[in-house]
Nucleic acid binder design. Sequence first.
RNA 1: UCUAUCAGCCGGCUAUCGUUCCAACCCCGGUUGGAAAGGAAAGUCCGGACAGCAAAGGGCGACACACCGGUUAAGCGCCGGCUUCCCGCGAAGGCGGGAAAGAGAAAGUGCCACAGAAAAUAACUACCUCCUCAGUAAUGUGGGGGAAAAGGUGAAAAUGUGAGGUAAAAGCUCACGGUCCCGGAUAGUAAUAUCGGGGAUGGGUAAACCUUGUGUGCUGUAAUGCCACGUAUAUCAACGUUCGAGGGCGGCUCGUCCGAUCCCCGCAGUAUUGUGGGGAACGUUGAAGGGUAGGCAGCAAGAUUGUAACAGUAAUGUUGCAGCUAGAUAAAUGAUGGCCGUUCUCACAGUAAUGUGAGGAUAACAGAAUCCGGCUUAUGGCUGAUAGAAUUU
Length: 136
Amino acid sequence: MEDKQRYFLRKENKLKSRKQIDAVFSRGKSFSVFPFKVIWLPANEKAALQAGVGVSSRNFKRAVDRNRIKRLMREAYRLQKHELEQSLQAAQQNLSVFVLYTGRELPEYELVFEKFTTILNRLIKITDATKNQVDS
RNA sequence: UCUAUCAGCCGGCUAUCGUUCCAACCCCGGUUGGAAAGGAAAGUCCGGACAGCAAAGGGCGACACACCGGUUAAGCGCCGGCUUCCCGCGAAGGCGGGAAAGAGAAAGUGCCACAGAAAAUAACUACCUCCUCAGUAAUGUGGGGGAAAAGGUGAAAAUGUGAGGUAAAAGCUCACGGUCCCGGAUAGUAAUAUCGGGGAUGGGUAAACCUUGUGUGCUGUAAUGCCACGUAUAUCAACGUUCGAGGGCGGCUCGUCCGAUCCCCGCAGUAUUGUGGGGAACGUUGAAGGGUAGGCAGCAAGAUUGUAACAGUAAUGUUGCAGCUAGAUAAAUGAUGGCCGUUCUCACAGUAAUGUGAGGAUAACAGAAUCCGGCUUAUGGCUGAUAGAAUUU
């Protein structure tokens, strides 16, 4: 059969530069999948897909809780992002995504995993739609 | 068994998928190996290291500190001692524990709730005395003065007791005390204690202003140094132009800004040239502005960690031996399982200790961001030591 799918999440796949993040926030479009808010921008100079996660320190005062949520989000993203990558490759597009947690309570891992499935599906739909626009 | 204090530790092994850094290897983005949060990493409250800027000297102001000695790189920390106050024990000398907002109230100003006549230039009642009036008188009315000894109030009422003294009294005088000041002896490094001498007799409050003494330049690792990149006769003002092409500003960079020099014009001269003016270029200062926010160093071997011995009442120090122990930057150290251990609940067996099975939990407070020494705050469980209390034998 085919090779086993690898689930990397390296430095190159993360949205790290302050400039890039500011660009995503100022020019990107967004949608919500409670308790998450997704901001995306169909452009990226450095890689095909870069993603970042964030938690407001207004809702979570302690750094321990913020770290926990960000770790859960990264884990859920890491295990499910390969489909989005394939679809991007097919559409020949680059994408920057930033996911914010807007809830006020500590989430369970199962919930985060589920919600990320729907988030990634919507992103795939969006890329397919833009692809069709380009084609037509 | 419970409470308090101190010290130590926070599960172990393993599977799958991953993260950051380091090293090695090669097919150059993969493989293998190693390392990867805390006692508070927190608050940013003190003190330093390190770095940059500033800097003649003095005064005013502001802020901090305030018994003594030791300790330390340093400190408002820590250790030991002194004084005062509080609590307990004791017949007492004293002992044990705790706290201190521990310089000055005799430089000045202010304030002192309620109660009380009055809270600081004390006369309400009661006391003494003088005058007036009434009355034979005792005495009483009104007014003046003396007087802090008595009363009650209060956290606090003008230094306590006794004697003299007086119309009544009063440190008014005397004796013994208390408190404060000055100078002395003894003990102690000193704070201070004890003893004796002289003088004074002023209520409290400085966590009221204040006074005295001592100390303090400012900013912080986004410090700071270096590299790369960006744009190109492309801002304005002032002053200026030689031995060499850089300097300065900003977190960084560009640009503004300027020089050597170059160009143009006038005048003198045949000419090299001299001189004057203008422009460009550039230097310094100031004002205003655009872009970028990437990389490296700082940045991980140190007032280092563990341990032993020695010195010291202790804080702490010295020496020996062993070890290397996170370095991210939208910020790594994780997610999901399994077994063992610990613990809780239920069921069964057993007099009981306990055993078996099923189910649950696996910890609280909390996440490095330049690094150390402290302080403060948040904190569940287990183990050990010490002290106290209760119960059983």
